[in-house]
Simulated scan of single mutants.
Amino acid sequence: MENINILSKPHITMALFRVETKYEDRLVNIVAKLSKGKYFIVDILGINAFFNSHVLLLEIDNSKALGKLFYKIGVMFNEELNDVVPKIFISKAPHMTISKVKNKAMLDD
């Protein structure tokens, strides 16, 4: 198989932020709490790409369950990391990244 230089594994981006590694334990604690929530189904609406950032993605439904999870993320970060994470971006366009590749030409193939 040809090496296609994939830069990212599949995932759903929920939030973007910066935090120093010395606060990793606090971050792991938040993720552990979130992982105890009830599972839910994610409906796939279509396939798309962010060509500027070389990302192939699945568009997913912004369901009530997903909205609750986004809300919980915001609340937990505000309560437990507000002193070390000055700004958090919660995704308003949920999507599932299939892969991020080195260049746009790889998405065109």
Score class of each variant (00 low, 15 high):
90 I>G: 00
26 R>W: 12
26 R>D: 14
44 I>Q: 04
46 G>V: 08
73 I>Y: 02
66 L>W: 02
72 K>C: 06
67 G>F: 01
42 V>E: 00
24 E>M: 09
95 H>F: 05
100 K>R: 15
33 K>D: 14
16 L>P: 00
65 A>W: 00
95 H>C: 05
31 V>R: 09
57 L>G: 01
62 N>T: 03
94 P>K: 02
20 E>D: 10
6 I>D: 06
81 L>P: 04
67 G>Q: 11
76 M>E: 15
42 V>T: 07
51 F>L: 14
74 G>F: 03
79 E>R: 12
33 K>W: 04
50 F>K: 05
22 K>C: 09
86 P>M: 02
22 K>R: 12
88 I>H: 05
47 I>G: 03
33 K>E: 14
12 I>L: 10
42 V>I: 15
60 I>R: 00
54 H>P: 01
13 T>M: 06
56 L>R: 10
89 F>A: 09
12 I>M: 12
99 S>Q: 12
94 P>A: 04
79 E>H: 10
8 S>R: 12
78 N>F: 10
71 Y>G: 05
12 I>R: 02
67 G>P: 00
32 A>W: 09
50 F>C: 04
85 V>F: 09
46 G>F: 08
9 K>C: 06
18 R>A: 11
3 N>T: 03
5 N>R: 13
90 I>Y: 04
29 N>F: 12
101 V>H: 08
96 M>R: 03
108 D>A: 15
79 E>P: 01
53 S>Q: 13
68 K>T: 03
91 S>K: 10
102 K>S: 10
28 V>Q: 10
46 G>K: 08
34 L>Q: 08
31 V>K: 13
76 M>R: 12
81 L>C: 14
24 E>W: 10
35 S>H: 09
26 R>E: 13
23 Y>E: 11
25 D>Y: 12
92 K>S: 14
53 S>C: 06
1 M>F: 13
54 H>F: 11
28 V>P: 00
9 K>R: 14
100 K>W: 07
29 N>Q: 13
5 N>L: 09
87 K>G: 02
84 V>Y: 10
65 A>D: 13
72 K>I: 00
73 I>H: 00
28 V>T: 05
36 K>M: 12
60 I>V: 14
59 E>F: 02
8 S>F: 11
16 L>I: 15
68 K>H: 07
45 L>D: 04
91 S>I: 13
94 P>W: 02
55 V>A: 11
50 F>A: 05
53 S>P: 01
48 N>W: 12
73 I>K: 00
95 H>P: 03
56 L>N: 04
87 K>T: 09
74 G>H: 06
10 P>M: 07
1 M>W: 04
62 N>Q: 05
43 D>Q: 10
8 S>H: 06
88 I>M: 05
107 L>M: 11
80 E>V: 04
26 R>L: 12
64 K>D: 08
103 N>L: 03
11 H>Y: 07
82 N>T: 10
83 D>Q: 07
8 S>I: 04
38 K>V: 03
45 L>Q: 13
90 I>P: 00
95 H>I: 03
107 L>E: 06
101 V>E: 07
82 N>L: 11
45 L>E: 15
90 I>Q: 01
65 A>T: 02
59 E>V: 11
15 A>Y: 05
75 V>S: 01
11 H>G: 06
52 N>T: 07
102 K>N: 08
27 L>S: 03
75 V>D: 05
